[in-house]
Simulated assay, not measured.
Amino acid sequence: MLSEDSVFPVSGAWSPLLRVWWLRPWRPNPLLRPLDRIEAVLRIIVVVAVLVAIPVAGTLGTTAYTGAAARIRTENAAKSAVSAVITEEPQLMSSHLLEARVQWLRDGRPGTATVRVRGSAAIGDHVTVWLGPEGAPTGPPQPSNVAAMTGIGVGVVVLSGTWVVAWLLLQGTVWLLERRRRMQWDQQWRNLNRPITEDRQ
């Protein structure tokens, strides 16, 4: 009678797949130890978890993108641009950063702030200042691709995090099972190497 080993010899690129097939937990092979079956079941669970994580990460990424896009649209709609005049000499804050005091007039109400300006800015130059709903200076409107990057980031984090956790759990459990198998082998070798006189006593 031909065995699976003789029909499908372990060689080449098919070796890992054949090993997985031979170690399937439901295989009626008396040589498969309980620890081998536990490890096989664990590997199946990890594979299923990794596959399930793909659509879950996609769903969470889509949800994050939708929320971020709505938030950006709302924030951008509440921002307005005003033309401000530099009233003081720009000050060098770092090697590539200049700040200057500016003043503007909006709806008949003056406003002042210290904002970043370009390197060639001088007193009397006009700069664009973005104001929030309360009239306070804020950042410029965010581009729409920020929402896309947020969604992609969430999806990647969820997917990679799930895969890393699954891999660590698998490796840790396999290490424990392998240690248990070595202990069993040591015990069996000690039983085989007992002096014959001990069995006769």
Rank of each mutant, 00 (worst) to 15 (best):
L2R: 14
L2Y: 11
D5V: 12
S6I: 13
P9I: 01
P9H: 04
A13H: 04
L17P: 09
L18C: 01
L18Q: 06
V20M: 14
R27T: 12
N29V: 15
P30N: 07
L35V: 15
D36T: 14
E39N: 15
V41H: 01
I45C: 14
I45K: 07
I45Q: 09
V46S: 06
V47R: 10
A49Q: 03
A53L: 01
P55S: 07
G58N: 06
T62I: 02
Y65S: 05
G67D: 10
A68G: 00
R71I: 02
R73V: 02
R73G: 02
E75I: 07
E75T: 08
A77S: 08
S80T: 13
S80I: 07
V85Q: 07
L92Q: 13
M93H: 11
S94R: 05
S94T: 10
S95I: 03
S95K: 04
H96T: 11
L97K: 10
A100E: 02
R101K: 15
V102A: 04
Q103S: 12
Q103R: 12
R106H: 06
D107F: 05
R109M: 01
T112R: 15
A113M: 01
V115I: 12
R116C: 06
R116T: 14
V117I: 08
V117C: 03
I123A: 04
T128R: 11
L131D: 05
E134Q: 08
G135L: 00
A136E: 11
P137W: 00
G139L: 06
G139Q: 13
G139E: 12
P140A: 11
P143L: 10
P143N: 02
A148D: 10
T150A: 14
G151Q: 01
V157Y: 07
G161E: 00
G161Q: 00
T162C: 14
W163Y: 00
W163E: 09
V164L: 15
L169P: 04
L169F: 13
L169W: 14
L170C: 12
G172S: 09
R182W: 10
D186M: 06
Q187E: 10
N193A: 09
R194N: 08
T197Q: 12
R200P: 03
